[in-house]
């Protein structure tokens, strides 16, 4: 096959894929519009157009961007700390059994706690503005820790034997064998943490009355019965979450090396 033909084909299939996605999105928006028309009450179910109008109105106010910025900082802060600590402590837990035994009950307890209990408890101890960040960290940390421990344990024993025979330095065993083996697990944990982080942060913002925040704007829209604004803020959360997910995936793909994610050649 000629290279030009191959490129044309791959471009065509990419266009088809994008058009397909737009088609699916259009279908759901159409369904939403029809449902809104059928309900015929913006107070119960505002139409997509009304929701979009709400976003435009909100964007006219500087507070809107402050709320989004602060919520984003809380999400990023919580997710970043949970992934960084999850990586370090997960490596330690995977490599050292006593440390794992010490950490495991703590992680299992947090995992089984209802998010609402954690939020209310943390809110008793620290300032409202910090509650979402701390809660996001606490909820996301078990996910990253567990994944990293699993990654360490699934590291190819044959490669570790080779490193032992050749007296490879401990720091290199960690950087060149354990970390690349853990990478797919850590990436999956990061993506889960981002998805979870948004939900937990916004919930904690509502329950802890953290200001400024997207969560409190949602809450105000609810108590003032501004259902269209409630939908607009929800739409903004979905868009922000999608954009961040795509940016993260793009950055991970850019930093991938050729052998990443491959089965070891052993």
């Amino acid at each position: 096959m000629k290279i030009s033909t191959f490129l044309e084909n791959s471009q065509q299939s990419r266009i088809k894929k994008v058009l397909g996605k737009i088609g699916v999105a259009f279908f759901w928006v159409l369904l939403w519009a029809l449902a809104a028309r059928w309900v015929n009450s913006p107070l119960v179910l505002p139409s997509p157009l009304k929701t979009l109008e709400g976003v435009v109105t909100l964007a006219g106010d500087f507070e809107f961007f402050v709320s989004i910025g602060v919520t984003l900082l809380r999400v990023f802060g919580g997710v970043f700390i949970s992934v960084a600590l999850g990586l370090v402590l997960g490596l330690a837990g995977g490599l050292n059994k006593p440390f794992y035994e010490i950490m495991n009950p703590f992680v299992s307890t947090i995992k089984s706690l209802p998010v609402v209990s954690v939020i209310i408890l943390i809110n008793l101890w620290i300032a409202s503005g910090l509650v979402p960040l701390v809660v996001t960290f606490l909820i996301c940390f078990p996910v990253t820790w567990t994944n990293v421990v699993q990654g360490v344990r699934s590291t190819d024993k044959k490669l570790l034997q080779m490193a032992k025979i050749y007296n490879v330095e401990q720091s290199k065993i960690i950087s060149d064998i354990y970390l690349p083996s853990v990478k797919p697990y850590a990436v999956s944990a990061l993506m889960n943490a981002i998805g979870l982080g948004w939900k937990v942060t916004v919930t904690a913002e509502v329950l802890a009355n953290a200001l400024p925040s997207i969560g409190m704007n949602l809450y105000y829209a609810k108590i003032y019965l501004e259902t269209d604004l409630l939908f607009s803020w929800t739409l903004i959360i979905v868009i922000c979450s999608l954009v961040i997910e795509k940016i993260t995936l793009y950055m991970i793909a850019r930093n991938n090396r050729k052998g990443d994610g491959q089965c070891p050649l052993s």
């Binding site: 080779m162 050749y166 290199k172 690349p180 090396r257 050649l265 052993s266």
Partner: peptide, 22 residues
């Protein structure tokens, strides 16, 4: 030194980096 049945090379490192590990 040990030559195993399988080469046991790190797939995420180049040949040179695999040897530099020593």
């Amino acid at each position: 030194s040990y030559i195993f049945q399988e080469p046991r090379l790190l797939p995420w490192r180049t040949v040179r980096e695999n040897l530099r590990l020593l």
